[in-house]
Simulated scan of single mutants.
Amino acid sequence: MIDRYVFLAILIALVVTWVPRVLPFVLTKGKSLPPLALKFLRFLPLSIIFALTLSSVVDERVGNFPRFLPIETLALFPTFFVVLKTKNILLAVVVGVAVTAGLRFLSGF
């Protein structure tokens, strides 16, 4: 039988992760946002993708300068090429993973 403490922790984690993702949709349903807010929101997907991409190709350690990971950085070029040509994010992810795996295999990691 599951412990009540663990069950309560899981429920709290569910609420904490679910509310910030769903609440904005609930609050703005049927309402129009000001033009300044819409202009700001247009840049969010690009900013999020850039932050995720940069965090995956840069190795940061306390006390050292950040450095680019060579294999992951090389995999960016074909991935971005696929995104620019096809505008298909799923295909770009598949290409990025495949190129990274191929480069790691060829380099002996």
Rank of each mutant, 00 (worst) to 15 (best):
L54K: 01
V57Q: 00
V97M: 11
V6S: 14
F25V: 14
T53W: 06
A51P: 02
V57Y: 00
F40E: 12
L27M: 03
K85T: 03
V57D: 04
A75P: 00
F43D: 09
F81A: 12
F68H: 05
P24Y: 01
Y5G: 13
L44S: 07
L14H: 07
P35S: 15
L106I: 08
L11F: 09
N64G: 12
L84H: 05
P35K: 15
T79R: 01
V94D: 05
I71F: 04
K39I: 13
K31Q: 11
T73M: 09
V95F: 06
I49C: 04
D3T: 03
V22F: 08
L90F: 13
F80C: 02
L46R: 06
L8M: 13
L11I: 07
K31R: 07
P66W: 02
L8R: 08
T17V: 10
N64E: 13
L38I: 11
F105R: 10
V22H: 12
S32W: 08
F68Y: 07
V95H: 01
T17E: 10
V26M: 15
V58M: 08
G108T: 04
A75W: 00
L74I: 07
P78D: 03
L76K: 00
A98E: 02
T17K: 08
G96R: 00
F40M: 15
V6P: 02
V95A: 09
S107Y: 01
P20W: 07
I2G: 08
I71Q: 07
T28D: 05
L91R: 04
N88H: 07
F50D: 06
P78W: 04
A51Q: 11
T73V: 04
G96D: 00
R67K: 15
F77P: 00
L84M: 09
W18A: 15
L84R: 05
V97P: 03
F81E: 03
L11H: 03
V22L: 09
P70A: 06
K29V: 14
T17R: 06
T79H: 01
L46C: 09
Y5K: 14
T28Y: 00
V58Y: 02
I48Q: 12
F25H: 11
G63V: 07
V57L: 04
V82C: 04
T28L: 07
S47M: 12
P78I: 05
